[in-house]
Amino acid sequence: MSDLQVTPNTHADDAAYLAALRSGDDTAYELLVRQHGARLIAVARRLLQNDEDARDAVQDAFLSAFKSLHQFDGQCSLSTWLHRISVNSALMKLRSRKRRPEQNIDDLLPQFVADGHAAEPATAWDQTADSLAEQRELRKVVRENIERLPELYRTVLLLRDIEELSTDETARLLGVTLTAVNTRLHRARQALRTRLDAHFRGHEPC
């Protein structure tokens, strides 16, 4: 029976917790799964858009983490470390899946006339970001529109803006250049802006 009684919440708790894990303490392993599992499933579900795949990815991530515990060097928290492993596991699963037919991102990017002016000048949105962010229905609309972005762009937007990974780490995980990450992020944000603009103006973009 384990004497581990406190669920670790902070980086400072990690050392004792890690020692319990490394000693093979079954209770410590169960606590790890129970404490971090739900958050990691949410991360995997955002990337994979499928509950079953998300569960598989999280299971793979935990098993991978268990095997690599001896490599955990404490430079980040256990929570951050597990997050990175789960993102990687979800991306591997994403790569192994057949891609669905998707809209071309160019349809959602701004168009310009020959002299460089916008073909359709942008207009202001009526409400501030703060008041908009708190609207439950709009939050759902934003999530749905992120989910509808082409996978190449959606993935980068999720990793950079939602999972808050750095450009370097995103590039490393996706195996692409920093420039490619920045280009895809900008296009993803522009495409999402186009869709939200249509939502606020009450019509669908073409």
């Binding site: 955002r46 949105w125 962010a133 939050r139 934003v142 939602i162 999402l192």
Partner: peptide, 11 residues
Amino acid sequence: RTTVRLGQQAF
């Protein structure tokens, strides 16, 4: 900027 903020908050 609002789009980025809404994306960050939506989840």
